[in-house]
């Protein structure tokens, strides 16, 4: 362990957990309302971000306007996906629904490649890259205080991501629509029998997931650039969802931050092999969660009857 690097890597790991939490949130939104685990979330994110880039760079919209238009478009895309692909699958077995979102992911990935090509692109910078924030810690190494250097985009994407998660949590907690969605997640038939429109609720949750995906994608693109591999970053969010618990919105923050932190911690190692394991750290955490506490930290434990 490089002890003098540990604070730096721990904090940047924790901060990179923000966007992971936001991606996990998109998955939880859909799962909470409709019991569908959306494996195509990464491709939703990719398409939303590519659209933002296209509007901002190719069509030279102001960045804020490009983002607003892309958010609206990805909400529409979410609605469209729910109507065309998932609604015919109502009542089908789990395998078919899982495969439907996987197929959707493949389809959207191919679509993105066909429409936008596979080249690496520079995403417009929102936060200045020149002046990183510096924090002096009380830890002393070689007679000097250890300094943590944080890139602005890392800090701000963390702030925006956590703000997004808190906003959605508040929406679920305090609004009527949020209450209806929580009700629908308890029991579809029961919710329908008291007059909630299940189809509309599913649609709204997909639209919200589309919006959340695009926000996450834009945040990720500002720090890591934009190419088709952006959709693969969501693969780190799946374990975060399970770690936090599938139904839990506070869980995604904790799950995302823990995943980010675990990646940061192994990156501080002196041994190359362990340093390289940062990329599969989410999945090692996932295996441990599945073996020890499959329902996650804040999830519901379900009891089954025949």
């Amino acid at each position: 362990m490089n002890w003098q690097l540990l604070p730096q890597f721990a904090v940047s790991g924790l901060l990179s957990g923000g966007p992971i939490a936001l991606m996990a949130l998109g998955i939880v939104l859909i799962f909470k309302s409709s019991y569908i685990f959306n494996f195509a979330q990464g491709q939703l994110l990719l398409l939303g971000t590519l659209l933002t880039w296209w509007l901002a760079v190719e069509r030279s919209f102001p960045l804020w306007m490009a983002i607003v238009v892309a958010l609206a478009a990805s909400a529409m895309l979410g609605l469209l996906i729910e109507r065309l692909t998932l609604r015919p699958m109502t009542g089908q077995p789990l395998l078919s629904i899982i495969l439907m979102t996987l197929a959707l992911g493949q389809f959207l990935q191919g679509m993105a490649l066909l429409l936008f090509g596979g080249t690496q692109r520079n995403f417009p910078q929102m936060f200045s890259a020149a002046n990183p924030y510096k924090i002096v810690t009380p830890f002393i190494y070689n007679g000097r205080n250890i300094q943590i250097i944080l890139k602005q985009n890392l800090v701000w994407s963390f702030v925006v991501a956590i703000l997004g998660v808190v906003l959605i949590a508040a929406f679920f907690r305090f609004t009527r629509a949020g209450l209806a969605m929580r009700g629908a997640s308890e029991d579809h038939e029961l919710a329908q029998s008291i007059g909630l429109r299940i189809n509309r609720i599913f649609g709204v949750s997909w639209a919200m997931a589309g919006v959340v995906a695009t926000v996450g994608g834009v945040l990720l693109a500002t720090s890591s650039g934009l190419d088709l591999n952006l959709s693969l970053l969501v693969l780190a969010a799946f374990p975060a969802v399970l770690l936090g618990g599938l139904e839990s919105i506070p869980g995604v923050i904790v799950g995302g931050l823990l995943i980010g932190l675990s990646q940061g911690l192994v990156s501080a190692s002196k041994i190359q092999f362990i340093r390289n394991s940062a990329e599969i750290m989410p999945y090692i955490v996932l295996m441990i969660v599945l073996l020890i506490r499959p329902e996650g930290l804040f999830g519901l434990k379900r009891i089954e009857r025949i």
């Binding site: 089908q92 493949q106 959207l108 191919g110 490649l113 066909l114």
Partner: peptide, 27 residues
Amino acid sequence: STAAGAVQALRPLFFGAALMLFLIFEP
């Protein structure tokens, strides 16, 4: 200009579309 990209793009596109159609119409 799109030669290599088109092949790469059409494979997941065709496969995804076929699988979705099968899941809906011939599960």
